[in-house]
């Protein structure tokens, strides 16, 4: 039982990362109407941006949940960097294209390679770590529930929750959010209603990429940083978006939660006698993705935006 709780705790951390990635991917899918293969590398970009910024503000201030205040500043810098690069990419690369969604999809692969090439050329392919001391599991949880959760895990979950709640308020409570939902739902109708969809698309890139960058930073914090982390996790993020229903932000959140959990629950399969090793965790997610595409292509939350 404690084992299952442990898996669920790990799952919650991983889900937080996947959710942050899947929101942006889903926004691009619904508003710009293409599968953005550069999204994973946007996550990596944010993680490196935060890495450099953390080198500058390093040990600034006190600590929150075991992380220095400087880390949260660095996180903001990483998010801003990813947003700026994504907007520039949109203006310079995607916008001038006269092509269909397949052409955009193929172009986004090229964009992903360029991002990764720049990172690889500047930082090399070695594993990097944020220079923050790792602490042991929180004693209280270890004693009462026998579950090992570090302060860092809690920080990731709480930060993701704050960002997701912020997005929810933006979408539901502001005029901008209503415009975004209208554009995602029906771009032509939104345009004839007087919404400047061009600007909405820019906002969509900013929001989606900033959240992706946050996901990338937490992913690097959770494990380690190298130029491939984003691309390696991209398919898992796609699985989450598809499971939740393409184009639905809340679906993406739900899909991210489920896929993240399933990813970390894979060891359970061998506990119950199925000889599927941990290495197949992403494979399990991909197979679920294909199954969802076949059985219910609109996902589990297809119509909610």
């Amino acid at each position: 039982m404690a084992q299952i709780l442990q898996y669920l705790a790990n799952g919650l951390v991983f889900s937080s990362i996947i959710i942050l990635g899947s929101i942006g991917l889903s926004l691009v899918y619904s508003i710009a109407d293409f599968a953005n293969f550069a999204h994973g590398d946007t996550m990596t970009l944010g993680a490196y941006g935060a890495f450099v910024a953390f080198g500058v503000f390093g040990g600034l201030g006190g600590t929150v949940l075991g992380l220095p205040i400087g880390f949260f500043l660095a996180l903001a810098v990483g998010m801003a960097l990813a947003a700026i690069v994504a907007v520039l990419t949109h203006i310079l690369v995607y916008k001038p294209l006269d092509t269909d969604s397949i052409g955009l999809l193929i172009t986004s692969i090229g964009v992903a390679f360029v991002y990764r090439a720049v990172l690889q050329a500047s930082f090399g392919t070695d594993f990097l770590q944020y220079d923050i001391r790792r602490s042991g599991p929180i004693p209280l949880l270890l004693d009462t529930l026998d579950v090992a959760v570090t302060q860092r895990d809690v920080a990731i979950i709480v930060s993701a929750a704050v960002l997701v709640a912020g997005l929810h308020l933006l979408l539901q409570r502001t005029t901008l959010g209503r415009k975004m939902r209208a554009t995602a739902d029906n771009p032509d109708l939104a345009r004839v209603s007087g919404i400047r969809t061009d600007r909405v698309i820019l906002v969509m890139w900013v929001v989606g990429s900033a959240l992706a960058a946050a996901g990338g930073v937490f992913l690097a914090l959770y494990s380690q940083l190298d130029p491939r982390i984003g691309f390696n996790i991209l398919l898992v993020v796609f699985a989450a978006v598809i499971l939740g229903g393409i184009g639905s932000v809340y679906g993406a959140m739900l899909g991210g939660l489920l896929i993240g959990m399933l990813h970390e629950l894979t060891p359970l399969l061998s506990d119950v006698g199925l000889p599927i090793s941990n290495a197949y965790a992403p494979a399990v997610a991909f197979v679920i993705m294909v199954a969802v595409l076949l059985v219910r292509p609109r996902g589990i939350a297809g119509d909610m935006t």
Partner: peptide, 21 residues
Amino acid sequence: PIGAAPLRLMLVGLLIIFIVR
């Protein structure tokens, strides 16, 4: 001033972008 692997990635990426454009 750039390694072979990133240079290759960069060229392939730029080629994709420019062909579609």
